[in-house]
Design a protein around this nucleic acid. Structure first.
Lengths: 265, 265
DNA sequence: GTGAGTGTTACACCAGGTGAAACTTCGGCG
DNA sequence: CGCCGAAGTTTCACCTGGTGTAACACTCAC
């Protein structure tokens, strides 16, 4: 995997100039020259290219270069989830080295947990094929349940309400909230949720051949996401997983939670 | 001025790949290959470079490339003003070709009009040396007065209040609001404001050797900015300027106002 | 005017970018 | 389990395209 692909120096320089331009709010050729150490003709060519690409502009009145206003739209496709996913990726990676089994990171989105990152590919065990963007049921998964368990009461209620109106039969357990809430309280108390292979509850049975434990990723008091660890049914047991790996899983969740982005909307 | 500086193809390609990546929310190498027409080894190198630059990332779980979350911060230095300035630049440019005299574009900011763009450099007449970022008094300038004249009453009141507390003696005319408001009403009625060379009013005299007329740049009912036209005292008169160029000035302001950005906060 | 500082152009060298082709890896299917 | 096709990766030789020096043009300060 360690690639020996070369990088493109000309492009790297261009990015460097862009960053310098972003750093100063506006800059003259001379300033960029001093800041980046690039020769002025080189800068002239780079800036020309950035201009043509709509990334930079040169004001006609003073000759100074600025970042183009169109750059404002670059970030707007990206949500907090992307930041979490990016931040979590290396943590998942290390976690997967310590613990052989794969783990997933998911956030709540519109009635289900959506997987942001995963370390499945890194393990020899093909527990399942869930990909990024895959949506996991709230009540039939460890990740969904631990998210609910650590949500503020109002949000929890709202989510359960939504699930009870869902078309998906797996969500219908939410129509019997008292049982569900009792279970969630237990998960909350012990700090993790479990879904064993063949998990059956509330009238439905899970057909997966994998088990999973999940812990919340907290930013202060707020649940950002769920982090889970899966194992193949038969290869090991829930008790072993909890004994051996729960602490490590929790520390990974803590790590993701602490080096968090600013609390957005 | 028409430069024959070459652009850097490698950089242009890199930007193209970034844009493709931004367009799709995530993309595989193959997709980028089809989308951009670039050879896969080339893409591999470019993507490596973008990753090293913190612009893109490759998810470890699926092999797909995404725009890095750090890109979110690129736009945050930029305000609506930057968009206005960028949009206005070519309009000012054309205006200056039709009318020989230089014009300025300014927005209200913290008790003064701040110049965003100017076409002074393009004319032989060095009327004055105001640069981008230069701050112009609200009451002693045509730009400031026309901005006030077209502001909603509440904002106008707030600005005058602020000026009356200012340390700058030029702002103190605001302490006598009834006179000022009467003058602003006249400017509003005729649609433009004037400051002639040696302009004296409210107990203070302008020392500039230039005259100026200004019109508002409207976005619907909202004043975005002021657009002004300056001339050298003695070279021409206010009447001539109004007769010959006011319509052109207004059309330029309208042009800026219509191809506006989305109404932000 | 003179001179320092900045922006621009010309040019010749050759590092560095490029893509065809070969190779590897992966996932699906029978 | 082995075949196959598709996607990703590496190699490598060609030669364009990126590079910086040096010369030039311009603006401003004094």
């Amino acid at each position: 995997m360690q690639t020996r692909v070369k990088s493109v120096r000309a492009l790297a320089r261009g990015l460097e100039v862009f960053k310098a331009l972003h750093h100063h709010r506006s800059a003259s050729l001379q300033e960029l020259h001093q800041d980046t150490g690039l020769a002025k003709p080189t800068l002239l060519r780079i800036l020309k290219t950035l201009e043509e690409g709509g990334i930079a502009r040169r004001s006609a009145s003073d000759g100074r270069y600025r970042v183009s206003a169109s750059v404002r739209f670059f970030g707007q496709n990206l949500g907090e989830e992307d930041a979490i996913a990016e931040l979590a990726a290396p943590v998942l990676d290390r976690l997967c080295r310590d613990v052989i089994w794969p783990s997933d990171l998911a956030v709540y989105k519109e009635g289900a947990m959506e997987i942001l990152e995963s370390s499945r590919h890194q393990t020899p065990f093909m527990v399942n094929r869930d990909r990024i963007g895959f949506r996991v049921h709230m009540l039939m998964s460890a990740m969904g349940r631990i998210y609910l368990a650590f949500s503020p009461a109002a949000e929890r209620r709202a989510i359960l309400m939504r699930l009870s109106r869902s078309n998906d039969p797996y969500d219908h357990a939410a129509r019997n909230p008292s049982t569900v809430l009792a279970d969630l309280a237990k998960d909350r108390a012990r700090g993790y949720a479990v879904r064993e292979a063949g998990y059956g509850r509330w009238g439905y049975t899970d057909r997966s051949r994998a088990g999973a434990i999940a812990v919340p990723v907290m930013q202060g008091r707020r649940v950002l996401a769920s982090l889970s660890l899966s194992w193949a049914a038969g290869a090991t047991t829930r008790e072993q997983m909890v004994d051996q790996h729960l602490d490590r899983l929790k520390s990974a969740a803590a790590e993701i939670g602490t080096c968090l982005p600013a609390p957005a909307a």
